[in-house]
């Protein structure tokens, strides 16, 4: 199993958090909220595509509505292996930062 890139990780977290409402616009907002900077749809969709290819997420169409120029929404969902990967990433993250607290940075600064 390959490691996830930062953006992939964040996208997956965003999808997990959004649950049933995980589609492009919302995911973008979530990602931007988490990382605090703007993203292009181009970039995000490239990431979606890669995640779909790796089978970490699946997509399914919603009902067509009158908004969005009549286009259907595409919802994303985490798969079993996607959850596993996230879990691993989480654990790794924990290990990497173990024993580091915010105060330790302040000390360094001082």
């Amino acid at each position: 199993m390959k490691e996830l890139t930062k953006l992939e990780e964040v996208v997956m977290v965003a999808i997990w958090r959004l649950g049933d409402e995980a589609y492009g616009v919302e995911i973008k907002k979530k990602v931007e909220e988490i990382l605090g900077k703007e993203y292009f749809y181009n970039t995000l969709y490239t990431t979606f595509h890669q995640l779909v290819q790796k089978r970490y997420i699946t997509k399914h169409f919603g009902e067509p509505t009158s908004v969005r120029g009549g286009k259907r929404k595409v919802y994303f969902q985490l798969t079993e292996s996607g959850m596993n990967v996230m879990e691993k990433a989480f654990i790794r993250q924990r290990k990497v930062w173990a024993g580091v607290s915010r105060e330790s940075f302040k000390k360094e600064q001082a």
Partner: peptide, 11 residues
């Protein structure tokens, strides 16, 4: 990914 992508952009 045409449809979802396009729709998102429009929204």
């Amino acid at each position: 990914l045409d449809e979802g992508f396009e729709g998102d952009i429009e929204e």
